[in-house]
Write a protein that binds this DNA or RNA. Sequence first.
DNA 1: GCCGATTTGTCCGTATGTATC
DNA 2: CGATACATACGGACAAATCGG
Lengths: 263, 263
Amino acid sequence: MFQRKEPTMPKSKYQDIYQDLKRKIESDEYAYQSLLPSENLLIQNYSCSRNTVRRAIGRLVTDGYVQTMQGKGVRNIYRPIEQTAFTLGEIESFRESALRNGQTPATKVLLFTELSADETLGRRTGFAPGTELFYLQRLHCLDGIPLIMNHNYFLKESMPNLTKEIAEVSIYDYLEQTLHMTIVSSRRIMTVEKISEIDEKYLRLNAEEYNCMAVVSSFTYNSDGIMFEYTQSRHRPDYFRFQDHAVRKPPQAHERTANHYSL
Amino acid sequence: MFQRKEPTMPKSKYQDIYQDLKRKIESDEYAYQSLLPSENLLIQNYSCSRNTVRRAIGRLVTDGYVQTMQGKGVRNIYRPIEQTAFTLGEIESFRESALRNGQTPATKVLLFTELSADETLGRRTGFAPGTELFYLQRLHCLDGIPLIMNHNYFLKESMPNLTKEIAEVSIYDYLEQTLHMTIVSSRRIMTVEKISEIDEKYLRLNAEEYNCMAVVSSFTYNSDGIMFEYTQSRHRPDYFRFQDHAVRKPPQAHERTANHYSL
DNA sequence: GCCGATTTGTCCGTATGTATC
DNA sequence: CGATACATACGGACAAATCGG
């Protein structure tokens, strides 16, 4: 029924278990609101230690797939993602998520240039003034519809040989597979802003219908702890959709999970 | 230096360590981009097992406070939350987060009524048609400025004696402290939608300036796995701000953390 | 209400692998 | 190469919550 050593093995046992349980939840093998097998049963099924199944379950919890109840069990609370054309996951690139959803991504590079950060850009992006950067404007389309207007600022030092051709396909593929960079962590801030003339032109927006849009600003770090990218993604408001999952922390000590919103 | 058994003790050792490390990071005791003490040192400092410090560090990772690097150490990548008046954390209620930021929250109940879910409401909210609900319209203000227009649907069965008076203060306080309900998990979807006349009126918006707004729809579950609340929060666009943190998962197997956005 | 079985939560110790320096 | 650091995995022990008899 279940075994490791598959063609694409995620390397670790608990990740295998996590993937397997996730698949079973997504495919309704465990019904919504039902309890998963107890830890003891899972230990037997997967021939592993308690620690290992608990790590897998822990990830399912933070992913919002299940909820654990001391003394009772682990309940499946997964609800499939609604309607919506495609889901842009995590630090996934636009191309990755589009392909994953069986859609046709297209990226048009409107501008490919170099610049060095000045005072104002530095305040906004976090790059020290004087830092050498690539500045790109890219339009992302899905099945022919222009959806996202991206303004990318990449640290030149981390990718001196970046070209327009690479930018037209996938910069992340290039960074990971050619430069062997490891992308680790990203901080994102979402706001609503007024549309600009550029947005109006390229996203074919009508200011009378929508005069503002969703803006996601992201700061992305690699495994050396260097912030190598600042990107502002300006989304068509009528197609924008962001989903997350939150867990209420201990009793009165209000901490947080991975995000919070503010105003 | 560090000890447990404080007045408000979070009950468990790894949470203490998590709190302590978080505090030290936030207070700049560990400099930005510097390495935290190694696991071995932390084991000595906190007199605990390796497992325990690793659990604490694991939470700091998913919270976006640190980044671990095999063979090197644990790097502080925490950046304080930007400007912005106040931060609405997680499943925190409006009142909780406002007080935490030293601001004056006010909630005006515009409508307090009961209804039973019909077909269309059921599709939107997930409540089965026929379910008895409280429907509230509430306006949340901060320091006198109306910021959020809330449409709450609460499961009547879970809180039969809810009153308008309770809704004016804090429903969450009532649920947790009086009814001893445990709020556990919440799924949220963010979109951008056009403003309605109600929004325009109560949030004092001018459609010529902003004709759309940020909308957060949330589905909240208690510890029995029952979805007891569906809420649509309509935010003033010029004050809305949402921050999150994402971690890139294993090499090619693109999974996710706790959220993804889509369009 | 009590008791025992089950189930999850916390904590400890140890061993081994892998990456960095 | 060895020393250091994090990653994975196993084992056991006890606490706390739930449920059924």
